[in-house]
Amino acid sequence: MQIFVKTATGKTITLEVEPSDTIENVKAKIQDKEGIPPDQQRLAFAGKQLEDGRTLSDYNIQKESTLHLALR
């Protein structure tokens, strides 16, 4: 499925993911596309910060959802 990640600079990244993917996997995909190390990424959805060990389906993130990326 496709999801979107909006960066602090307003850029939107499109990612191909599975509901079973962990947040860690998603951060690795962002690193592949943007070169941002996962340990510098903070992802949020619906106002909640997402934890590495959880999956997209844990957070009820569905196709075409938009996550927000902040850098630490």
Rank of each mutant, 00 (worst) to 15 (best):
M1A: 03
M1C: 03
M1I: 13
Q2I: 09
Q2C: 04
I3A: 01
I3E: 00
I3K: 00
I3Y: 01
F4A: 08
V5E: 00
V5H: 00
V5M: 03
K6W: 11
K6L: 13
T7V: 12
T7K: 09
A8P: 09
T9F: 07
G10I: 04
G10P: 04
K11L: 07
K11C: 04
T12K: 13
L15I: 05
L15Q: 01
E16M: 08
E16V: 09
V17I: 10
V17M: 11
E18I: 10
E18F: 15
E18C: 04
E18T: 13
E18Q: 12
P19F: 12
P19L: 14
S20R: 11
D21L: 11
D21G: 05
T22Q: 10
I23F: 03
I23A: 03
I23N: 01
I23S: 02
I23K: 01
N25A: 09
N25P: 01
N25F: 14
N25L: 15
V26H: 00
V26A: 02
V26S: 01
V26W: 00
V26Y: 00
K27H: 02
K27R: 09
A28W: 15
A28S: 05
K29P: 00
I30K: 00
I30P: 00
Q31V: 13
Q31E: 11
D32N: 15
K33I: 11
K33W: 08
K33Q: 07
K33T: 08
K33V: 14
E34Q: 04
G35I: 03
I36N: 05
P37Y: 13
P37G: 14
P37H: 09
P37M: 09
P37C: 04
P38C: 03
P38F: 09
P38V: 13
D39K: 11
D39E: 08
Q40W: 06
Q41G: 03
Q41E: 01
Q41I: 11
R42W: 05
L43D: 00
L43N: 00
A44Y: 07
A44N: 11
A44M: 15
A44T: 09
F45I: 07
F45Q: 04
F45V: 08
F45G: 02
A46G: 08
G47W: 06
K48V: 12
K48W: 10
K48Y: 15
Q49K: 06
Q49F: 09
L50W: 01
E51N: 06
E51L: 05
D52P: 04
G53M: 10
G53I: 10
G53Q: 09
G53V: 14
G53S: 14
T55E: 05
T55G: 04
L56H: 00
L56N: 01
S57R: 13
S57T: 11
D58Q: 15
D58P: 01
D58R: 03
D58S: 10
Y59M: 05
Y59C: 03
Y59P: 00
N60P: 03
N60G: 10
I61N: 00
I61V: 15
Q62K: 15
Q62C: 03
Q62A: 15
K63I: 06
K63H: 06
E64L: 14
S65V: 14
S65L: 08
S65C: 03
T66M: 12
T66S: 10
L67C: 02
H68W: 12
H68G: 12
A70L: 06
A70T: 05
L71Y: 12
R72L: 15
R72V: 08
R72S: 12
R72F: 12
